[in-house]
Structure formats: structure tokens, C-alpha cells
Design a protein around this nucleic acid. Sequence first.
DNA 1: GTTAGTGCAAACTCTTTGCAGCACT
DNA 2: AGTGCTGCAAAGAGTTTGCACTAAC
Lengths: 140, 140
Amino acid sequence: MSKILNDANLKNTKAREIILEVIKKTSLPIRAEDIYKLANKKIAINLSTVYRTLATLLEKGILTRQVMHDKKAYYQISTLAHKHILVCEICHSQTPIEDCPMHHLEDKIKADTGFDIKDHSLEIIGICCKCQEKLKNNNK
Amino acid sequence: MSKILNDANLKNTKAREIILEVIKKTSLPIRAEDIYKLANKKIAINLSTVYRTLATLLEKGILTRQVMHDKKAYYQISTLAHKHILVCEICHSQTPIEDCPMHHLEDKIKADTGFDIKDHSLEIIGICCKCQEKLKNNNK
DNA sequence: GTTAGTGCAAACTCTTTGCAGCACT
DNA sequence: AGTGCTGCAAAGAGTTTGCACTAAC
């Protein structure tokens, strides 16, 4: 019986609880497909249910959605301060960065353009330490 | 007869010239579908050709591709310093911002994490001046 | 008992691909 | 002439939707 769901006036179903649990546990942004696979280890659940649940939770502001360079949508709990990640273009590992550079910038942009910023999405692509090492060794 | 194409060892076809022209003229990041529509006003061209040309130009580093919140890929000429845009969630207008906050940050991230940054993508979502005005007037 | 949530299959959108024919150098 | 480019149609991936059934309140 999840407080989050109750507070949002949503029915407390097994599917929703497990989906929320999976997203919380992962902590990094996660895709619908992966949520589906992880949730399916615990209960029988349909992929459409995952998508529909994600849409609902997004609408209620419980989740945050970000579309990445691979054109896939990634979700995370929005109460966990939003995280940006470094994506390695070789091994596809994800490393979170601690503070978000955008917060400092929002005021400046608002002053310059009058634009009222609601959200932003930042994706950083490069090569992680491990893969840099591997590249070095391969070139020897 | 486009210098850009020659320099990249690509054949100089009508389709490619027009596609490049369209992207240059737009200056803001633009979608394949829109390039197709604009190019089609000048010559008969197929949507696959647009996609294939974009893929080729991307590979050669002539273009830059960014996937936005709408899950669509947007392209821009990469010699024009890369631009970030403010997207209005109401009218979907796009406003470019002048300088990119990320450049200042790359060194710090590299020092903190060892990650070698190759690229990044930043999308800012909110409400533009005009739509803020409209909202005010509607509430009167 | 009602309404909201779910499963299933089919549809939808953007993008990619195989193949045959055409155009650039 | 030869290779690279294009058009067409069909496939692909991720996501959404309509409908009938089921479960939560």
C-alpha cells in the first residue's frame, strides 16, 4: 500500500507498486523496456501496462522523463533530485554527475529572454575512464 | 557545386545541395520531415533520400544531430557553433540561447570523474514570453 | 457496484533497409 | 563505364490505443 499512489489519488495495484519499486531501486534513469523486464521477474505484467503506468505517474509529477540520444525515453523518480548522466559511447555505462549546472543558469536565461523555464534535459556523451584505458592498451 | 560536398568526397547531387541549403537557411535545428517538405518545394525528392543524406552528412561531421523531448531528431550545420534552444511547451516556438553553459563545465566534470566529454545535448523547456502574456490575458 | 486499471492485439510514427534503376565523375 | 545515389515499398523499433475483462475502492 503505497503512500505515493494514495497521495496522487491512484488505485493501489500490484503493477504500480512494483513499477515504482523498480524505478526507485535503479536510481539511474531507466527505460520502459527495462522496467518491464525487471517487473516481470516479480509478477506477470504487460508492456502496455508499464507504458500506461509511466504516463500516469508522469502526469502526476511523480516521475520525470528524458529522451536520450538513442531516442528512447528514460524515467526517474522526480523527488530524487534530478540527475544528469554521462553516457559512455563505447560501453554505454552511465555515470551520474552530482550537481546540475543548469540551476545557476536559469535566472540568467530568464533575464535575457523572458523565457519561463519549467524543465530541462541534459545529456553528456563521451568516453568513460575504463574505456579510455582499454583504448590505450589496444594501441600499444 | 558545393564545396562542402567536394571536401567530404561526396558526389554533388541536386538533392544534397538543396538539403544543405535548407538546413543552412533555417539556422535553427530542423527535423528530417521539415527538410523534406521544404526541399520538395524545389525538387522532387524522396523522404528516404533525406534520411540517407542526413546520415551521410552526419558521418562526415558536416551536421550535428540532437534528439529532443518529442523523440524526433533535429539537425543543424556543425560549423555554425552549436546552438541550444528554448522550446515553448505551449506554442512550440524555438528561441536560441547565445552561449553554451556546458563549455565552462566540461573541465570540472573531467577532473571529477575522468570522463572524456565528446558531445552533449541540452534542451530547455518552458513557456515563451508571448505565451506567458496570453496566459495572463486568459486569466483576466 | 462502479470506476479505474489491465492484457492483448492491432495501429501509429519516425526511421532504416533491400533492391533495381539512374546520375554523377 | 563504374560506383555511388535515389526512389519505392516494405520492414523495424518504440510507443500508443480500442476493446473486453478484471480488480480496487
